[in-house]
Nucleic acid binder design. Structure first.
Length: 827
RNA sequence: GCCGGGAUGGCGGAAUUGGUAGACGCAGGGGACUUAAAAUCCCCAGGCCUCAGGGCCAUGCCGGUUCGACUCCGGCUCCCGGCACCA
């Protein structure tokens, strides 16, 4: 199905017009600001209808708010650094920048075909020094504020990408990009101290009531706060203190062994020089090398080895064996756990396997007066109960015991309250070429020295021909880059060979857009303050725990450095569902999709936009079908024909509402209802129902016979304005036909409903008998409750149901329903 | 396993947040126009029964609250997403 008017020609005309008029150029001094942002675009080929959907949501709001008198910031840019460009370069033997800029060119062309109202003057491209120098500037600032540091750590290594990954980039043990199984390596890398903001980021989540609930839940989980106590156990042989984190101090009397993470530092030394050394070393090496994916799938089956050493329970003085155990992770807590097999399922399984004693110290109340018998237990008892075998705490409810034991430990100086987070510091070093060079110099005399701000940018060398990763940084092999002089002492020194994670680029791009051309600073505080926070942020759910945490962290860190005022970057977030084709998610890199560059020339941008807007509510996924296109094409064709059939009738003078005929009154009310619903639905991010309302109104107009009625003519005018955010090209064309002397339709005020005419004079009230619909009565809106009830009881279809029965009561819900309740009939 | 979301005609989806279930659209059936087809327009359209007035059933399943439940509560089934031994 094709459009019945020259869509392409007319769309091109108005796109050029908007560009020439600067319709979407941002106001330098916003009075009522509205910042609409769609998530950063990674240029990897053509733009498909999945992208289009995302951008259409933003564009509807941008245009609507503009017509409502807001000053809108609606920018676009390119997340242009990253591995796919580098991999493409390796595959095709050209430079990553070639592939990147070709992709950008194609994508920009497609976006312009769609006629999205971006302020292209503020376009940013992260792989240009104009952008990435500010990554470096901010990195140095973070370093100066103690938020960037280097440490040796066991890091996630993707053997395919040949680079490290942040925790957020590992999903289920595989690389987020290439799906290769991630390994562990010990390396010295740069980290950003996001953990310093863990509590604030968590508290902030509670206030983000205009974010989707699932994203908030994911962030809470990801930050993973848990309250507990750090108890000082002692290594029996050396009296060395080993702090152990637990959330269950109430089970402290039930500890029968200690479990140590194989990756932890203590695990390396604990059995050295003893008869257990060989067994411990064998186990340690085997577990550490075990790929993550295997550890994930091998749930349940626990494995460990005895170290020959013992720990002393500071509360009881008990002496318990220390094991290495594969289920303990080094990165959480202290890497050592006190094991209470009676009341922890993992410890239970481990104890059973290695014949370690089990002690019951929490008694289930339901069991009373019988007692928990460790030898016959089939699983750990993990619920609340009464403390037993716990010295002075016997008889205490275990949930109260947590507090009491903690207090006791604190008093004795053998424990302290701590809060633990699952969130880890952000690893930002990457061993790849196509990224922002980390602006640090390693000097044999001065150590790590940041490149002075006035000597930025550290340019990414362009004359590199070999990007093949060799397990170390690509830049390490580029002599002209790596060799430098120390900014501090002037002696020979080496540059940091790593580049930054590209999530750094997208952590502050929302700020750069507010001052995109600044060549003195990343952005001015005054400009950022004008626009932040983002009023509407639209993007994919896949960024829930990566980007959306990083950019919340950056915004706060930058605020603390005095660079801006707002701490929370975005108040309203909407995540959109994927668009699939025959059940397969559209993807540029996999070449699956309906391409904007092909679809728009054939069907038009307005049809494409309507199709993705109308198909389903934004947060849900949708399958692209030809039938969808058929439906919206018919809609625009009928619109076109309506105006074609009524030349010269479009009017903008509000009719004299005192002189309406009955039919006119109905049409006028329907129009106002449509306006009200469209605005309310857009405010609620429900574009599918807004379009449905407009379709209904078009049906009303088509059916309306009195074409010379002033109401009909006025409705034609209002409909053009109403449509403008949804089918901008068509609306602009109709607008100019009706008012050749006027400017853009987007300079006009969006219609407001006439509040006096939002409801019909007559209301149709359903009449139920005992909750079942039996008839409907039509009464004047002004009817009193008594009048409505009287009319309802007189309804013709009610009679058979009332024969021989008595009416117990009549319920009337104003304007909604009448329910006639009968007395219960004696059987 | 834990957390979050969901289940409505042949299909995509509506339903003022407790008040006419199925808006709008697609596909389908019937008709008009046409030599014919396409396009367009009009009518029908959840299922079953029907004395042709209407009746009964129906929002994943079972129960409850209520004058009234797609909506609230309790218990299940299944689907999607997130997390994965976090001490």
């Amino acid at each position: 199905m094709r459009v019945a008017y020259p869509a392409r020609e007319l769309e091109k005309r108005w796109q050029e017009y908007w560009e020439k008029q600067g319709t979407f150029r941002t106001s330098p001094n916003p009075q009522r600001k509205f910042y609409v942002l769609v998530m950063f675009f990674y240029p990897s080929g053509d733009v498909h209808m999945g992208h289009c959907r995302n951008y259409a949501f933003g564009d509807v709001l941008c245009r609507l708010r503009k017509m409502q008198g807001y000053d809108v910031l609606h920018p676009f840019g390119w997340d242009a650094f990253g591995l796919p460009a580098e991999n493409a370069a390796i595959a095709h033997g050209n430079h990553p920048s070639y592939w990147t800029f070709e992709s950008i060119k194609t994508a920009r062309q497609s976006l312009k075909l769609l006629g999205i109202g971006y302020d292209w003057d503020r376009e940013v491209t992260t792989c240009l020094p104009e952008y990435y120098r500010w990554n470096q500037w901010l990195f140095v600032k973070l370093y100066e504020h103690g938020l960037a540091y280097r440490k040796e750590a066991s890091v996630n290594w993707c053997p395919n990408c040949q680079t490290v990954l942040a925790n957020e980039q590992v999903k289920e043990g595989v690389c987020y990009r290439c799906k290769a199984t991630v390994e562990k390596r010990k390396l010295t890398q740069w980290f950003l101290k996001i953990t310093e903001y863990a509590q604030e980021l968590l508290d902030g989540v509670d206030k983000l009531d205009r974010w989707p609930e699932n994203v908030r839940a994911m962030q809470r989980y990801w930050i993973g706060r848990s309250e507990g106590v750090e108890v000082d156990f002692e290594l029996e042989e050396t009296r060395e203190k080993i702090p152990v984190f637990t959330t269950r101090p109430d089970t402290l009397y039930g500890v029968t062994f200690m479990a140590l993470a194989p990756e932890s530092a203590l695990a390396e030394t604990i059995a050295r020089g003893t008869e257990h050394e060989r067994a411990v070393e064998e186990f340690r090496k085997r577990i550490i090398l075990r790929p993550e994916i295997e550890r994930l799938t091998a749930t349940g089956d626990k494995e460990g080895v005895f170290t020959g050493k013992h720990a002393v329970n500071p509360l009881t003085g008990d002496r318990v064996p220390i094991y290495l155990a594969d289920f303990v992770v080094a990165s959480y807590g202290t890497g050592m756990v006190m094991a209470v097999p009676g009341h922890d399922q993992r410890d239970f399984e481990f104890a059973r396997k290695y014949n370690i004693p089990i002690k019951a110290v929490i008694q289930p109340e339901s069991l009373n007066p019988r007692t928990l018998e460790p030898s016959s237990m089939t699983a750990a008892y993990t619920d609340v109960g009464v403390m037993v075998n716990s010295g002075p705490f016997d008889g205490t409810r275990s949930d109260e015991g947590i507090e009491k034991v903690t207090g006791h430990l604190e008093q004795q100086g053998i424990g302290r309250r701590v809060v633990n987070f699952r969130l880890k510091d952000w690893l930002v070093s990457r061993q790849r070429y196509w990224g922002t060079p980390i602006p640090m110099v390693h000097c044999p005399n001065c150590g790590v020295v940041p490149v002075p701000l006035d000597r930025l940018p550290v340019l990414l060398p362009e004359d590199v021909t070999d990007y093949k990763p060799k397990g170390k940084s690509v830049l390490e092999g580029v002599e002209s880059f790596i060799n430098t002089t120390c900014p501090s002492c002037g002696g020979p020194a080496l540059r940091d060979p790593d580049t930054m994670d590209t999530f750094v680029d997208s952590s502050w791009y929302h700020l750069r857009y507010t001052d995109a051309h600044n060549d003195q600073m990343p952005f001015r505080r005054s400009e950022a303050d004008k626009w932040l926070p983002i009023d509407e942020y639209i993007g994919g759910i896949e960024h829930a725990t990566g980007h959306l945490i990083f950019f919340r962290f950056f915004t706060r860190a930058l605020a603390d450095m005095g660079l801006l005022t707002v701490r929370e970057p975005c108040v309203t977030l909407h995540t959109q569902g994927m668009v699939s084709l025959n059940g397969v998610t559209m993807s540029s890199s996999k070449r699956i999709g309906v391409w904007v560059g092909e679809f728009v020339p054939e069907h038009g941008a307005d049809v494409g936009r309507l199709a993705v807007l109308f198909a389903a509510p934004p947060e849900k996924g949708m399958d692209w079908t030809d039938d969808l296109v058929t439906g919206v094409t018919r809609f625009v064709n009928r619109l076109w024909r309506l105006y074609d059939d009524n030349p010269g009738r479009v009017q903008f003078e509000r009719p004299d509402t005192a002189k309406l005929t009955a039919n006119e009154r109905v049409l006028y009310i329907r129009m106002n209802q449509t306006i009200a619903k469209t605005v309310a639905d857009c405010d609620g991010f429900q574009f599918n129902t807004a379009i449905a309302a407009q379709m209904e109104f078009l049906n009303d107009l088509t059916a309306f016979a009195e074409r010379d009625s002033s109401v009909f003519k006025f409705a034609l005018g209002q409909l053009i304005l109403l449509l403008a955010p949804f089918t901008p090209h068509l609306a602009e064309e109709l607008w100019h036909r009706a008012r050749p002397e006027a400017g853009s339709v987007f300079g006009e005020r969006y219609p407001d409903p006439d509040q006096e005419f939002l409801v019909f004079d007559e209301m149709v009230i359903p009449v139920q008998v005992d909750g079942k619909l039996r008839d409907r009565v039509s009464v004047p809106r002004s009817a009193t409750e008594e009048e409505v009830k009287k009319a309802a009881l007189a309804a013709a279809n009610l009679a058979p149901f009332l024969v021989g029965r008595r009416v117990a009561k009549v319920v009337y819900v104003k304007g909604r329903v009448v329910n006639v309740v009968l007395t219960k009939e004696a059987q």
